[in-house]
Design a protein around this nucleic acid. Structure first.
Lengths: 182, 182
DNA sequence: CCTTCTTGTCTAGTATATTAAACGATATGA
DNA sequence: TCATATCGTTTAATATACTAGACAAGAAGG
C-alpha cells in the first residue's frame, strides 16, 4: 500500500557506496534524518527528500520510477489481432496475449457518429496515435480539434479526453498507449 | 530551484475540474492543506502528497514526471511531425519535443528497396507497429516475414531485427516504441 | 435587497518532521 | 588494552506540516 521510501533510499545509498553521514553532508541534512527515513520512522517532506536526492544525485521522478519488464510471437496477421471493440468502435489489439508487454498498439476503426462514450475518459499513462483514414474529433482537457489522415496526437491519459467521429466516413487510427490499458 | 509542487498540483486539479474540497474529500485530507500546498506555503510530506494524488488518481512517479508550465501540445498536424529519416526511409515523429514522454510514435515510409541498413538492429526496449500501405519484409531473430496492410508486429528490441521494403510500392507503417528511442 | 451554496484563504492548536547531540557497536592501530 | 575512528541508531528540543474551523468573495435564486 505504502510507497517504501525508506527501503528505496537505502538501496540507492548503498548502491552508491556512501554512508548516511556522507549523504547527509552532501545533502545538507543531518545523518539522523537519513536514518529515520530509511527506517520509515518518518515520511520526509518533499523538500527534504529532494535535498537528500540532490546529494546522490537523483531526481524525484527517477526516485519514484524504479522498475522495468521476452521471445514470443513477433508477427501478427490481420486475423491474429484481437478484436476488442463493439460495432461502433472496433479495436484490433496487437500482441494481446503477450505477457509483461509495456505498450498496447491498436488498429482502431470508428464508424460515422461513433464515440468513446458520453463521458470523458481519464486513466493513467500516455497515449498517441496517427490518423490513417477519415477524420476524428479529439477533445483533450477541454480543447477540441479534428484530425485528418497523417495528423497525430500525443497526450497524458490522465487528462480528460474523448474521441468522436463527427464525419460521414469511417475513421481509422493506429494508436499506442503505455502502460498497456488493453 | 525548488520543484514547484504547488503549481503542479493546482494544474492537475484544475485539469480535472474539481475543487479543493472535492479533492480533499477523495484524498482524506483537509481542504486547507490542499490550499497551503498549492500556494507552496508548506512542503507536503511524501505520505500526504501520496494521499492527495490517490484522490486523482495519479502516482508519485507520474506527478514528478509531468512537465512543468503550460499543458503540452496534444494535437499535431502533418507539418508538425518532426522529419528524422533520409530519402529512402522517412520517419515522422509525433510529439518529438515533448519532455519526459514514455513512447515514440512514428509515421514511417520506406521507398521501394529501402531498408534500415545492412546490419541487424538491436537496442533496449520494445517496438510494435501496423502496416497501412504497401508491404514490408521484417526479420526478427532470424525469422523473416512479409507484412501487408493491416498486419502488425510486436517484439523486444534487443532481438536483432531489420526492416526492408522488397516490393515496388512505397510502404507506410505507424509504429511505436518504448522507451522513446527517437 | 436577502438568503444559501460554493469557491479559496487564513489562523490557532496539534501532530509530526527535523535537528543536535548522545549512545553502543565494530574496526584499526599503537 | 586503550585509544580513535566510523558506522547506524536513538532521544529531547525545535521547526514545520497538518487539522478544524472561521472568514470573505462570488454566484444563483427568491
Amino acid at each position: 500500500m505504502n510507497i517504501d521510501v525508506g527501503v528505496r533510499l537505502r538501496n540507492i545509498r548503498t548502491a552508491f557506496g556512501i554512508s548516511q553521514r556522507e549523504l547527509a553532508r552532501r545533502a545538507g541534512v543531518t545523518n539522523g534524518l537519513i536514518s529515520l527515513i530509511e527506517q520509515n520512522r518518518v515520511s520526509p517532506s518533499v523538500s527534504s527528500l529532494k535535498k537528500v536526492l540532490d546529494g546522490v544525485p537523483m531526481s524525484l521522478a527517477e526516485f519514484f520510477t524504479l522498475d522495468l519488464g521476452a521471445a514470443p510471437q513477433a508477427f501478427f496477421g490481420t486475423d491474429e489481432l484481437v478484436e476488442l471493440g463493439n460495432e461502433q468502435v472496433s479495436l484490433r489489439l496487437v500482441a494481446a496475449q503477450r505477457p509483461g508487454r509495456q505498450m498496447s498498439v491498436l488498429h482502431e476503426r470508428y464508424a460515422p457518429g461513433a464515440a468513446t462514450g458520453e463521458e470523458m475518459l481519464a486513466h493513467r499513462g500516455e497515449e498517441a496515435g496517427v490518423v490513417i483514414r477519415g477524420r476524428i474529433e479529439l477533445t483533450v482537457s477541454g480543447a477540441t480539434r479534428v484530425l485528418g489522415p497523417g495528423e497525430a496526437y500525443y497526450f497524458a491519459s490522465q487528462l480528460p479526453h474523448r474521441f468522436r467521429n463527427a464525419g460521414r466516413e469511417a475513421c481509422e487510427i493506429i494508436s499506442a498507449c503505455t502502460p498497456p490499458t488493453f
